[in-house]
Design a protein around this nucleic acid. Structure first.
Length: 434
RNA sequence: GUGCCUGUAGCUCAAUGGCAGAGUGCUUCACUGUGGAUGAAGAUGUUGAGGGUUCGAAACCCUCCAGGCACCCCA
């Protein structure tokens, strides 16, 4: 195995057992999005470098994007985020779209980072935005979408919280301390990184920005004040709306939430595990001007993004991901021997024609081996067509869980399998069985 | 881009300078028309790669490669 060609650093292979989990996760993202009436959209994975030069943070494009020349010599970029694409798509059709837009998307993104816990170079991201409304109800709605997702995957409010803040409130409070407005962006960035370093180091850095000891003390007090939101009419409204939306238990106020990206202008929020063991699960907020930088009219919006990597770590820790590969919808068709294989194929075709998934064993192996395979692959029903049954036009169907088996004709077999199929559909309509 | 740690069977790991092992998985058989258990037998290694030290290296040293973790940045 030493000489197999390796995959690219920071990418992941999704074997069927992992793919089941990925589909499960996507299902919940879709369900939460659609529950609030959001529509799916997507853009290309390749974009021009120019698009990101206009919009994204400098570091994201210069340091972290995969940039290369196409065969014609033009610089292209593997998308490191979706927002610029969204802005471009909205700007291109701004006169024919009907606002507000409620759009969601799921797809792959690439960032050239050093892979580590919770960070890969190729990852999947759920993006969801409400564009064209300045209402605080829109801010609350996006937070409610996030909370609905967290609840539906089985995460409890004791385990995960959506931490909410408002940049306007923080700016106002910081100004009250008499801090110069030119140091404000740097200071906000420091607040965003408070928990990532020892307290005394952080203090030193803040003093280095030009603050005096008293101002530092004032900042520290602000950041410890869990009731600060009461001074913000906007936050009060948002929290009230979230109570009415039935997700109040998932939401709390945190003055330390600022968000690194510069384009946020109001409400900002992140989901964190309450033990603070993992990175932010998702992050988002209010922006004033989505499309201005790509040449459109200013449009306000609110949205968030959730990567698949951190949420998977959290879900794994709390054992919330369905583990097993299941073929329980289908039936496994054995092949008895060289003289009967045609009957097995014929039966399988008949079952498929009746809308039943049928999987045929491809070799003339011993029945024991075939049943062992069926068991390992997660089938719950197997069919045997041997010489004895063939004469009577019957088949043996075996329940691989109860180990019971019965002999019956084709019509009865189809009826039995179809009834089971109907039961399955009913079960699947429950969101946590997606 | 900076720093620290780790590479041994498919997987998880042991062997700390002296014959490369265990558990698990895998294959076969007990069971020639019936799978999960049990028992028995069997297969599997360039010890990440290359070089050096040594009578002798999986182990010690150097270089490279790969992976993990933290910083940076962020989903």
């Amino acid at each position: 195995m030493a000489n197999v060609i390796r995959s690219i650093k920071g990418t992941r292979d999704f074997y069927p057992s992992e793919m089941v989990k990925r589909q499960w996760l996507i299902g919940h993202m879709r369900a939460a999005s659609e529950a609030f009436g959001y529509q799916p959209y997507d853009g290309p994975c390749l974009e021009t470098l120019e698009l990101y030069a206009a919009k994204s943070g400098e570091e994201l494009v210069k340091e972290q994007a995969f940039v290369f020349e196409d065969r014609g010599g033009d610089p292209v970029t593997l998308r490191p985020e979706l927002t610029p694409t969204l802005a471009r798509m909205v700007a291109e059709k701004e006169n024919e779209l009907f606002f507000p837009l409620r759009w969601w998307s799921f797809g792959p993104f690439w960032r050239y980072e050093r892979p580590q816990k919770g960070r890969t170079r190729e990852f999947f991201q759920w993006n969801i935005d409400l564009i064209g409304s300045e209402s605080l109800l829109a801010d609350a709605e996006l937070i409610a979408v996030a909370a609905t997702f967290l609840r539906n995957v089985g995460l409890k409010p004791q385990t995960v919280q959506l931490l909410v803040n408002d940049r306007r409130l923080m700016e106002k409070q910081v100004r009250k301390l008499g801090i110069a407005s030119e140091t404000l962006p740097d200071l906000l960035r420091m607040i965003d990184r408070l928990d990532r370093q020892p307290g005394h180091v952080w203090d030193e850095k803040v003093l280095g920005l030009g603050l005096n000891r008293e101002q530092l003390k004032g900042i520290r007090e602000l950041l410890g004040n869990k009731e600060l939101w009461r001074e913000s009419e906007e936050l009060s409204t948002v929290f009230t709306a979230l109570q009415e939306l039935g997700v109040g238990e998932y939401v709390s106020y945190d003055p330390k939430i600022i968000r690194g990206l510069d384009y946020y202008t109001g409400i900002v929020f992140e989901a964190h595990d309450t033990k603070d063991e993992f990175r932010a699960i998702l992050g988002g907020g209010r922006y004033a001007n989505l499309v201005g930088d790509v040449g459109g009219k200013p449009l306000p919006g609110v949205g968030f993004a959730m990567g698949d990597v951190v949420i998977n770590l959290v879900l794994e820790k709390y054992n919330l991901i369905p583990q097993h590969l299941e073929n329980s919808d289908g039936v496994f068709v054995t092949i008895f021997d060289e003289t009967t294989w045609k009957s097995s194929l014929e039966l399988a075709a008949e079952l498929r024609g009746a809308g039943i998934e049928a999987t045929v064993y491809p070799d003339f192996d011993k029945l024991a081996k075939q049943l062992k395979y069926a068991d390992r692959m997660g089938f719950t029903k197997a069919v045997v067509v041997g010489p004895e049954e063939l004469v009577k036009g019957e088949v043996v169907v075996k329940d691989l869980i109860s180990r019971e088996q019965i002999t019956l004709d084709h019509a009865k077999l189809i009826e039995l399998l179809k009834n089971r199929f109907v039961e399955k559909l009913v079960v699947q309509n429950q969101p946590n069985k997606f």
